[in-house]
Simulated scan of single mutants.
Amino acid sequence: MQLTRSYRKVRLRPSLTPMIDVVFLLLVFFMLAAQYSREATIAVRATPHTISDAPYVGPPRLVDVTAEGVLLNGVNMPLAEITAQLPTLMETPTDTILVRASGEVSVQMLVDLLDHLTAAGLPNTALVEAQE
């Protein structure tokens, strides 16, 4: 006598619960890791010719940023004095200030200068390329 067993094929379905748990954990992680602050921007024009087609008028207003310091029309002076001198060189408050950075200046130094000028009420700046 031969005994046969009948085997039922039980089809096991994979559980989606662990995968859903992982997805929710990743979602929570990325939500907590994300920055919700708004980035500050500084408006800068590439050249003064993009501001208007009118020629440059008035006294020179060239601010040089070097590794040694900040110069206004070639004269080295503190940044606070530069922001005090610039309005006397401007015919209107909307006149353009030319900013030139030398090659060894970090981007952070340039951004700090532009931020300081904007905070002093002098937002119209144009970057010019330094000739090497």
Results as ranks from 00 to 15, higher is better:
48 P>N: 14
131 Q>P: 07
38 R>W: 02
82 I>V: 08
31 M>N: 00
102 S>D: 10
125 T>C: 11
30 F>D: 09
83 T>M: 02
112 D>Y: 03
72 L>H: 12
127 L>R: 06
51 I>C: 04
78 P>W: 02
54 A>V: 14
33 A>F: 05
104 E>H: 12
17 T>S: 10
31 M>A: 01
97 I>C: 07
25 L>R: 13
103 G>W: 15
26 L>E: 12
72 L>N: 10
90 M>Q: 15
125 T>L: 00
60 P>A: 04
52 S>F: 02
39 E>R: 13
98 L>T: 01
128 V>T: 00
18 P>L: 10
110 L>C: 08
56 Y>D: 11
49 H>N: 10
31 M>Y: 13
14 P>Y: 04
2 Q>G: 11
60 P>W: 12
84 A>R: 08
67 A>L: 05
67 A>N: 00
37 S>P: 06
30 F>A: 08
48 P>Y: 06
94 T>S: 07
36 Y>P: 10
67 A>D: 10
25 L>A: 00
97 I>T: 14
127 L>I: 00
28 V>K: 10
10 V>P: 00
64 D>F: 10
6 S>V: 13
118 T>N: 08
109 M>Q: 07
87 P>M: 12
86 L>A: 15
106 S>W: 05
76 N>L: 11
95 D>H: 09
76 N>M: 11
122 L>M: 07
103 G>L: 14
85 Q>D: 10
42 I>A: 13
42 I>D: 09
65 V>S: 08
108 Q>K: 11
53 D>S: 13
65 V>K: 08
65 V>I: 15
117 L>D: 04
116 H>G: 04
17 T>Q: 07
115 D>Y: 03
8 R>V: 04
101 A>H: 01
68 E>P: 15
122 L>G: 10
86 L>S: 07
38 R>A: 08
102 S>K: 07
39 E>P: 08
95 D>Y: 04
15 S>Y: 05
12 L>W: 08
91 E>K: 06
89 L>W: 01
47 T>S: 14
9 K>H: 04
120 A>G: 09
35 Q>F: 05
105 V>P: 01
50 T>M: 10
115 D>S: 12
120 A>E: 12
10 V>C: 13
120 A>C: 09
52 S>I: 09
84 A>D: 15
116 H>C: 03
76 N>C: 07
66 T>R: 13
126 A>N: 01
28 V>D: 04
61 R>T: 02
98 L>Y: 05
56 Y>G: 01
